[in-house]
């Protein structure tokens, strides 16, 4: 019976090169670099993150994990911010009152942005130290995508097996 783990083993901090640490940290810092250009419609942040992902995704699993975690977590935050901008403008344009639900979502968006900012900074520091930090949902998703052993990865490889 072939016995191999479903996921590739995680690298330990001493196994991650300086270059990988920098690239991984960069995936979180892209947010700040493009923040100014992205306002008031923050879609530019997302574009920058997507471009950064495609440029760096071949630089190893450690980098890819952080790229994916940053990208996936940025998508809902960006969409939420964009939605709030549109809702606000629409209300002004149509002279519609700002409802409780509007303010509820506004404060939720602010709260999420603060969390996102804090977690991103922390994750960037961890990445720079060659370590992992898993966001709720996005961390597992990114780990699954970056570290899962896929059939395509292993079918052409000779696998060393322990003695039976």
């Amino acid at each position: 019976m072939r016995n191999y783990t479903e996921y590739y083993p995680l690298p330990q901090p001493n196994e991650v090169s300086k270059r990988e640490r920098d690239d991984a940290m960069g995936s979180y810092l892209m947010m700040f670099a493009s923040l100014g250009a992205g306002l008031p419609l923050p879609i530019i942040n997302l574009l920058a993150a997507v471009i950064y992902y495609f440029v760096n995704k071949h630089k190893g699993r450690f980098v890819r994990f952080h790229l994916l975690q940053s990208l996936w977590s940025q998508i809902p935050v960006t969409l939420l911010n964009g939605f709030m901008v549109i809702w606000t403008i629409r209300n002004f344009m149509t002279q519609t009152d700002f409802s409780q639900l509007f303010f509820g979502l506004l404060w939720t968006t602010v709260f999420i942005n603060v969390l996102y900012l804090g977690f991103s900074i922390y994750a960037a520091v961890r990445a720079n130290n060659g370590r992992f930090f898993y966001f709720l949902f996005f961390g597992k998703l990114a780990y699954h995508q970056a570290y899962k052993v896929r059939y395509d990865d292993s079918k052409n490889e000779e696998v060393n097996l322990p003695p039976m």
């Binding site: 209300n91 002004f92 002279q95 519609t96 009152d97 700002f98 409802s99 409780q100 639900l101 509007f102 303010f103 509820g104 979502l105 506004l106 404060w107 939720t108 709260f111 999420i112």
Partner: peptide, 17 residues
């Protein structure tokens, strides 16, 4: 997310233009 939205909505007051 939904709970946060509802809680914040409950704590907010509507504003008329």
């Amino acid at each position: 997310f939904i709970i946060a939205w509802l809680v914040f909505s409950y704590l907010s007051k509507p504003v008329s233009i």
